[in-house]
Amino acid sequence: MANLRDIRRRIKSVKNTAQITRAMQLVAAAKMKKAQDQAIAGRDYAKQLKEVLVNLKENVGEDANPLLVKREGTRELVLVISTDKGLCGALNTNVFKKVRANVSPTADFVTVGRKLRTTLGKTGRNLIADFDVKDPVPFAEARPIAKFLTKQFLEGRYDKISVVFANFVNTLTQEPTIHQLLPIDPGGLGDEQAYEGVGKGDHGKADKAAALSKDYLFEPSPADVLGDLLPLYVNFQIYQMLVESRASEHSARMVAMKAATDNAKKFIKELTLEYNKLRQAAITSELLEITTAMKAME
């Protein structure tokens, strides 16, 4: 049985841990609120932008813009969005699982976030670029990433560009999601599987029906509008996915740290109980010794 001093030391160290996890939980909770608000605010824009695009694509052919053209090849580039810091539960592991399940090992990778960059590097994947993104995510930081990926695609180095990220569902649920970024899939826009900011799969379908019944004027011309709109769409999607990932990260961390704090508290309780028992036993045995000694002296 452990002695008193050991247990006392143990309690102290667990208390320290609990204090740290509690502080992290509070910090994550504050950041989580902000990140969630940002993610949810962006969804309105995502929805409207998509509506315009769905309408547009009914009015112009697929060949109108190189970003829409599907290619035969299989060279794939994958953007993996993970977190910079750990201690956020199984979030990064789940994202990595999604990568392993859905992406061929020969694909090249671009990463945001330190955690999976290391993991991907260790498992021998080919990383071609890495981006740093501040917290909270500024819209301007999505641009270099979008620009880089679009360039790789347009120069014909890759035939398909996908993104793997943790879609924010609610505080307790974050869903690792894979989304095809380029070519922009006109069929996929109304697809239930496609990423739409939230799991509102029916939305795209309704838009499609509505779009078909309308005759649009384009100013200056469909091709010009499309030429401006598509890069913006790519740009915004990346922004939205970054924001969703951030919201997921802080939510996951908050939950993980809350669990850690609760466990630590439970542990402290158990240890304290054992400590008290031991202390009592020690006092009893001490008393016993004294009385025995007294009896012997009589």
Binding site: V52, N55, K214, L217, E219, P220, D224, V225
Partner: peptide, 19 residues
């Protein structure tokens, strides 16, 4: 502020997409 000049929109305007 449309790309081709200012657009005034009143009710029942024709469907339009503009930069």
């Amino acid at each position: 502020p449309g790309t081709d000049g200012e657009l005034g929109i009143l009710e029942a305007h024709a469907s339009l997409v503009s930069g």
